[in-house]
Design a protein around this nucleic acid. Structure first.
Lengths: 222, 222
DNA sequence: TCGTCACTTATTGTTCAACAATACAAGCGC
DNA sequence: GCGCTTGTATTGTTGAACAATAAGTGACGA
């Protein structure tokens, strides 16, 4: 839906609020499993309880927080099943999007930009930013499929995955190795060898899944 | 996430309310483009404005209603781009889910049940119910992929598509022919010829898309 | 006659305060 | 130690209030 019935561009505090909380979640300021008290958080953020509750509804639908009726809202704790599910979806979506892609699709430009961004951030050892750039790369891959709905769905999944990333301490190991791999995927794809690029991507995702799962298990053991 | 931090099963009016409004939307009691006044609707449904607004956030995130800041909430009007996008996604998701399916997956049982249901509803000429059963069939196909997140995503898309269905008058023509086609897909798949089943499914979706688009254009012309 | 401007009005955005309903914790009897 | 009742804090839901915005209205001037 392009410009449904107006869709005027007002700031609408609620939007701002959602963004703010999302940032808190992705930055790790709020740790998974933590309960988010309505009164406390509304006071801290300077909004009313009702407004906060509206934001919670949006975030809950995005999977970032979990609403337990009559008990409260919690930062979603990624469990193993979620991680497996998310990676299965990523393989499902990304590989197919890449394999059916039009070689000179505008999104390829974004892929390139993301790789560049990741490289410069890596030089500055800003691993959080490297993670963002890597995600942008994969978002661009999904964009190859030319579906607006798929794009927002993938953004959602990415945010949820970042929640899991937040559980781990060694960000360098978590994001660093994939800069090269992304670049390799891109170069292979641009060279015209789509099937090889897809194979690389599949390998990338498998390795990433293993890393995340291992770190999750290590962390969740005690 | 299976049972995140409790997730107790209270009715929580809000849930009920969302279901109620969804039903109104899918049944066509609320027509696309219509503005939903907060005060009017809250009074009509016997809930407070705040509660209704919370429900609106959920429904807006599902794409069933469109929120225009400072202007109000409108029943989403499906445009041509949305229909095309949704069908592209359905081809993307359903075909791949079916082609990679484990032949004795539990969801096959659901597929069979949906076909049965559709047949009986067709005999009673209850086309609305036929539409529901057909959708359940395709939901079962998606379930073959074994991804919880993909399931909810597809449910969302289905609801949005039903909004478009609501624009058309001839429900028999809209839902009737596909009962046979679904059955054919199922039988071919159960016979073990997966590739043929996928081809049939693809054909199904293409024909359905043409029908919907044509009806949409016919309706939107004046 | 037409367009522009300020003004009016209705609706949404947001807050506040209150009460009901529920879940958790503590204390009690056994 | 175990089940039960009681208390308390938090969420669920409501109603009213006010600010902010958008649409409609009508006067005014070219």
């Amino acid at each position: 839906m392009k410009r449904q019935a107006g869709e005027g561009r007002g700031s609408t505090l609620n939007e701002t609020l959602c963004d703010e909380i999302r940032r808190l979640l992705v930055d790790g300021a709020l740790t998974p499993g933590q309960r988010l008290s309505e009164s406390a958080l509304s006071e801290q953020l300077g909004v009313s309880r009702n407004t906060l509750r509206e934001a919670f509804r949006t975030l809950a639908h995005e999977g970032l927080v979990t609403h337990a009726p009559n008990r409260g809202v919690f930062v979603t704790t990624p469990d193993m099943a979620s991680i497996v599910d998310i990676y299965r979806l990523r393989r499902f979506i990304e590989c197919r999007a890449l394999s059916a892609a039009w070689p000179s699709h505008p999104a390829v430009r974004e892929m390139r930009a993301a790789v560049e961004e990741a490289r410069t951030c890596r030089e500055q050892r800003n691993w959080q930013a490297v993670g963002s750039a890597n995600m942008a790369f994969h978002g661009a891959i999904v964009a190859l499929a030319d579906s607006a709905r798929l794009d927002v769905f993938f953004r959602q999944i990415s945010a949820e995955l970042r929640l899991a990333f937040g559980l781990m301490s060694d960000k360098e190991w978590l994001h660093g190795p994939y800069v090269e791999m992304n670049q390799q995927v891109l170069e292979t794809f641009e060279a015209g060898d789509t099937t090889a690029a897809v194979a690389l991507l599949e390998q990338y995702l498998a390795q990433s899944e293993r890393t995340v799962l291992a770190a999750w298990a290590r962390q969740a053991a005690p």
